[in-house]
């Protein structure tokens, strides 16, 4: 177990290193002098001097990376020459919104996927299983940006439900209930994709697990079907579910971009797209770095949970 965790931590550090190189190199993809792009309309000799000192743009590329990663490790992602805000503080303000959206969506997704997958698995090919199978397959082909646009069209516009349309976001600190209302559609949109994936993965694993001999043995002990499902079948069937969730939650950050963009919710995605529009390259770079490392870290956490759920994995 300890060896396993150590290997995983090493991998986490390795991947973060690769990500940092990728994020660092982004500004060199800009055609021509990166300083021109980063400074934008604020291109003055004074600002140029600051930027060159900040990024070491006149030095070799390896030195530039070392200077940059040194700043990053001290929690400094630079100060935007467009908005004049520190990149870290902008990210700090936006990130909680993404986390709240993801948290809400995952509650909905798990709370619906787990019981429905159990129902389906109990009677594979029964009517419920067929309906959910066809329905979830269809939903696989509906991208989140279509779901959110349609929801806004029908719920906010046609039905006129308050606080759900574009630009109706209210921060959590301001008003808890209105904040929740304004996040209903975004969270629901994110939960649809998660639900489909979780339902399908868990259903097929449960069906496989229920064929196992140890389930027959558990039945022979005279315990209830419900208890067999939750205590005996669920846990060994949840490895793939957790693995999928780890990857999916990372992907949700990206789906969140789309939703935030449409509803003008100032999370990381909205901030990122605005930064791209205003050519605020340092901010884009910072968000990419934070999001990528965050996604890898979430994967790592789920890997760890899987190990606790199924002790067979780290023993292998």
């Amino acid at each position: 177990m300890i060896k396993y965790v150590a290997r995983r931590v090493a991998l986490l550090i390795g991947i973060s290193f690769v990500i940092s190189i990728g994020s660092f190199y982004l500004i060199h993809l800009l055609p021509g002098d990166p300083a021109v792009f980063i400074l934008g309309t604020n291109d003055s000799p004074a600002n140029r001097a600051i930027l060159f000192k900040q990024l070491g743009l006149d030095r070799s590329i390896v030195t530039q990376y070392l200077i940059w990663i040194g700043h990053v490790l001290h929690g400094n992602l630079g100060i935007s020459f467009i908005s004049h805000n520190s990149v870290v503080s902008t990210i700090k303000a936006a990130l909680p919104i993404d986390l709240e959206m993801i948290f809400l969506s995952q509650i909905v997704a798990f709370a619906s996927a787990v019981p429905l997958a159990m129902r389906s698995a109990r009677k594979p090919d029964g009517w419920l299983d067929r309906v959910l199978g066809a329905g979830s397959f269809t939903l696989l082909s509906v991208p989140p940006f279509i779901i959110i646009v349609l929801l806004v069209l029908f719920v906010s516009i046609k039905l006129g439900v308050a606080n759900t349309g574009p630009a109706s976001f209210v921060p959590l600190s301001q008003n808890f209930l209105v904040n929740l209302e304004s996040l209903v559609l975004p969270s629901f949109t994110l939960s649809v994709g998660s639900f489909v994936v979780y339902y399908r993965v868990l259903r097929s694993d449960l069906i496989a697990t229920l064929q196992e001999e140890f389930i027959t043995m558990a039945r022979s002990k005279g315990i209830s079907a419900r208890r067999i499902m939750w205590r005996h079948a669920f846990r060994p069937s949840s490895v793939a579910l957790l693995g999928t969730a780890g990857v999916n939650i990372g992907g949700l950050l990206a789906s969140g971009f789309v939703v935030q963009y449409l509803l003008a919710i100032p999370g990381l995605g909205y901030t990122l797209i605005s930064a791209i529009d205003t050519s605020d390259y340092l901010l884009v770079q910072g968000i990419v770095l934070v999001v990528s490392v965050g996604v890898v870290f979430i994967n790592f956490v789920f890997d760890f949970i899987i190990n606790i759920v199924d002790p067979r994995i780290s023993r292998e």
């Binding site: 500004i27 993809l29 992907g251 884009v284 990419v288 990528s292």
Partner: peptide, 20 residues
């Protein structure tokens, strides 16, 4: 597997936003 660890869309957005 290292490359698979994070969602493609973030990498794609990142590269496309700089590679103008």
């Amino acid at each position: 597997y290292v490359l698979l660890a994070f969602p493609a869309i973030i990498a794609v957005i990142a590269v496309l936003s700089f590679w103008t």
